[in-house]
């Protein structure tokens, strides 16, 4: 498992850990049943506090990504497609929101955004066709 913690990202460290483990799970790099490093081991490896790590694992459990078994460790849970989809949708919505905000700031009409998205989709499928 690869986890990189940045001090300069402006994102809380527990959030960074959560995001990276989630990404790894959703990408299939961490398969169901994988045992994650123990909270204390991960804290030591990353030189971060135990409570920060505890918080990340706790959040991951609440969101259904892992199962923390007392005394045994944290196991990656199987991701059913609905949850994966929901997660993806939320992420897309977030990015689109950013795009919208940027457009409003630069006073770019909404119509142009639609066009831009269509163009991107066309380009993407065109690439696929070439392969």
């Amino acid at each position: 498992m690869r986890i990189v913690v940045s001090n300069k990202a402006g994102i809380p460290i527990y959030q960074q850990i959560e995001d990276q483990i989630k990404t790894a799970i959703l990408a299939g790099d961490l398969v169901e049943g994988t045992l994650l490093p123990s909270i204390r081991q991960l804290a030591k490896d990353l030189q971060i506090s135990v409570i920060t790590t505890t918080r990340a694992y706790h959040d991951l459990e609440e969101q259904g990504f892992v199962n923390n078994v007392q005394g045994k460790g944290s196991y990656v849970l199987g991701q059913d497609s609905a949850l994966v989809q929901e997660h993806a949708l939320r992420e897309i919505e977030e990015h689109l929101g950013d795009a919208l905000a940027a457009a409003q700031l630069a006073k770019i009409p909404v119509q142009d955004l639609h066009t831009m998205l269509d163009t991107l989709i066309a380009a993407e499928s065109g690439d696929d066709g070439d392969r």
Binding site: P12, Y14, Q47, S49, T52, R55
Partner: peptide
């Protein structure tokens, strides 16, 4: 402390300002 401390006690002028987790 920012990274490795689990708990933080912040004292100023002889008074406790905060006790809890850094984040």
């Amino acid at each position: 402390l920012e990274r490795i401390a689990d708990f933080l006690l912040y004292i100023r002028g002889g008074r406790q300002q905060f006790f809890g987790h850094v984040d």
